[in-house]
């Protein structure tokens, strides 16, 4: 660990360490101020009699109904389905890179995955609107702007995030078991199935939770592809609206109506979801320590 420095020299060091500590406090304070702002601005809705109106199933501002539950459900449905596609794929990619595929292909594949992290979301959205949506419209009924379209593209978007987390875990586990596995003559796929996968449960859980959080927080993909109808989708081909897209769509309406304040409630829900994701990760990590 870090060596201790000689005590008598600390005096000369005060200013820089105070500055560094200050910077860290500012960084940490940002999180709390985001929370405080969201809470303060959604307070009129939460404390007033409007909470019931907020937690209802209909978004019809012209009729005075400001229910955001359809968007909550939309967010959960979309993030869940995107993860259902992305997670097995990510697992497959990691198995491929860690022995199930040929060694020559592992490196280019991994570089592509890293490159995918740098592809702007809006580029995925643009290409999908003109490539994927017409395909879905042609293959099924409906307008093509649907849960399905958004879920598929969102899966591509979160794939690298999930792959990188699982990969880190696999690297750590394989460093421990590789020699033993080779000594008992396990093939790479056997090593993967019987040793690496079971030993990586913790990392796999963390990848699932963080990937879900990433999928929940994306705005552009649902906004451009999911159709944005404010209701609970009945099938994969229906259009849906997520909390994030809802904020983007409604942010600019009249600033004194309940519609406006409900935005901050949406933001607060998203923030709390992030908090839950982080606590989830923490509890997975903690279980292993305890």
């Amino acid at each position: 660990m870090r060596p201790k420095e000689p005590c008598d020299r600390r005096g000369a060091d005060r200013l820089p360490s105070a500055l560094l500590c200050g910077a860290a406090c500012v960084s940490a304070a940002l999180v709390f101020s985001i929370f405080a702002f969201l809470a303060a601005f959604s307070w009129p809705v939460l404390s007033g009699g409007q909470l019931g109106s907020l937690l209802s199933w209909h978004w019809r501002p012209l009729a005075g109904e400001f229910g955001i539950l359809p968007m909550v459900v939309g967010s959960l449905c979309l993030a869940g389905s995107a993860m259902a596609v992305a997670y097995p794929l990510a697992l497959g990619v990691c198995c491929f890179v860690h022995g199930c595929g040929p060694a020559w292909a592992a490196r280019p594949l991994f570089v592509s995955i890293r490159f995918m992290t740098s592809v702007p979301t809006v580029v995925y959205g643009l290409v999908s609107v003109f490539l994927l949506v017409p395909v879905i419209r042609g293959a099924f009924s409906g307008s093509g702007f649907s849960w399905l379209a958004a879920a598929l593209v969102l899966a591509v978007l979160v794939l690298p995030t999930v792959v990188l987390i699982i990969d880190t875990q696999f690297q750590a586990v394989r460093a421990e078991v590789r020699v033993a596995a080779a000594a008992v003559g396990l093939a790479p796929s056997q090593e993967m199935r019987h040793l690496v996968l079971p030993l990586s449960r913790r990392g796999l859980a963390i990848a699932a939770v963080l990937g879900f959080g990433r999928a929940l927080g994306d705005t552009l993909i649902p906004l451009m592809l999911a159709g944005n109808a404010p209701r609970v989708p009945g099938s994969l081909l229906d259009s849906l609206r997520t909390l994030t897209a809802h904020i983007a769509l409604v942010v600019a309406t009249d600033s004194h109506s309940a519609a406006y304040n409900s935005l901050f409630a949406c933001g607060l829900i998203l923030f709390l979801a992030t908090l839950c994701v982080n606590l989830g990760v923490l509890s997975v990590r903690g279980r292993r320590l305890g």
Binding site: A24, S27, A28, L30, V31, F32, S33, I34, F37, L38, L210, G213, R214, L216, G217, D218, T219, T244, I247, A248, V251, L263, F264, G267, L270, F271, T274, L275, V277, N278, V281, L282
Partner: peptide
């Protein structure tokens, strides 16, 4: 502090915009 930083990393960008 790590918890705070991880939390910040997870906050959706639209929420930061709203902030």
């Amino acid at each position: 502090f790590s918890l705070a930083v991880d939390l910040l990393a997870g906050v959706p960008s639209i929420v930061v915009g709203l902030f």
